[in-house]
């Protein structure tokens, strides 16, 4: 199985404070990998470093065999995309135009216009996330959940090998959460692809991951299948409280018990 992300002894710092330290991991093709851990443990920072939004102070990060530090933005955008959280957008772009931006990395010259292939890919991505009917709608008039789906369509439109997601279920209701993970599962199954996602909901991480990486204080303290990593002692240590007891209380409300 080929490796699409390889992080070797990476450290990332804000100023002099190392937020990620000595992280080594690999994400293989055909897998969905979840990063879990308490707030501030370095999950988002690690994702940003993998996407070259933050530099590493030590170690190397390779995506699709290329060292991200030595790869141009455009090349990297063709290998990895991130489903961004859309912040306040004052400019009134249509859904179609927003997703078409994802084709930027495929463009040859500065003067090249939108090709028929671009439009076909974008329409297909919008259809996948159920937003094709709203293609001409302004993104400023969409709900939070609809915007998330537009951002997912844009990530698909880049036609990358890896999609990275940071808290992808924010703004999504339960139905759309389930749909999002189904879209991702289908996408991964289509070829040499992988998903790396930061998850706060441990149930979702367990249900929709092939591999879980548990982080604590800037380091990966456990990795493997969900069953192997999501054990009481490890989770209690990473989150600093009794995770099973919390789950038990939640499940009791529904008349069940966590396994």
């Amino acid at each position: 199985m080929s490796s699409l992300i390889e992080v070797t002894d990476a450290a990332v710092a804000y100023g002099r404070t190392e937020v990620v330290r000595g992280v080594t991991l690999r994400v293989d093709a055909g897998t969905r990998v979840s990063l879990v851990g308490a707030n501030g443990c370095g999950k988002t920072t690690l994702l940003k470093a993998i996407c070259k939004l933050l530099p590493t102070v030590r170690g190397t990060i390779c995506v699709d065999g290329r060292n991200v530090a030595a790869t141009s933005r455009k090349e990297l955008a063709n290998a990895i995309s991130m489903m961004a959280q859309i912040s306040e957008q004052w400019f009134d772009f249509s859904v179609l135009d927003t997703v078409l931006m994802g084709r930027y990395g495929k463009r040859g010259s500065a003067l090249a216009g939108t090709s028929a292939d671009d439009v076909r890919v974008v329409q297909s991505c919008l259809r996948t996330v159920g937003m094709l009917e709203l293609a001409e709608e302004s993104i400023t008039r969409l709900s939070g959940g609809q915007r998330q789906r537009v951002m997912l369509a844009r990530a698909f439109a880049q036609q990358p090998k890896v999609i990275v997601l940071d808290e992808p279920t924010n703004h999504l209701d339960l139905k759309h959460q389930a749909e999002l993970f189904e879209h991702l599962a289908a996408w991964v199954s289509e070829g040499e692809r992988a998903v790396l996602q930061v998850m706060h909901d441990l149930n979702l991480a367990r249900a929709y991951s092939d591999v879980v990486l548990l982080m604590e204080d800037g380091r990966v303290i456990a990795d493997g299948t969900p069953d192997r990593v999501m054990r009481d002692a490890l989770l209690d240590s990473a989150f600093g409280f009794d995770v099973r007891e919390f789950m038990r209380r939640s499940y009791k409300l529904w008349g069940g018990e966590p396994t």
Partner: peptide, 20 residues
């Protein structure tokens, strides 16, 4: 196109492939 993309902010523009 770069102008369009930059309106989404530096991080998103960089993720799409713009040398911001």
């Amino acid at each position: 196109r770069e102008l369009d993309i930059l309106t989404f902010g530096d991080e998103q523009a960089a993720l799409i492939g713009v040398n911001t």
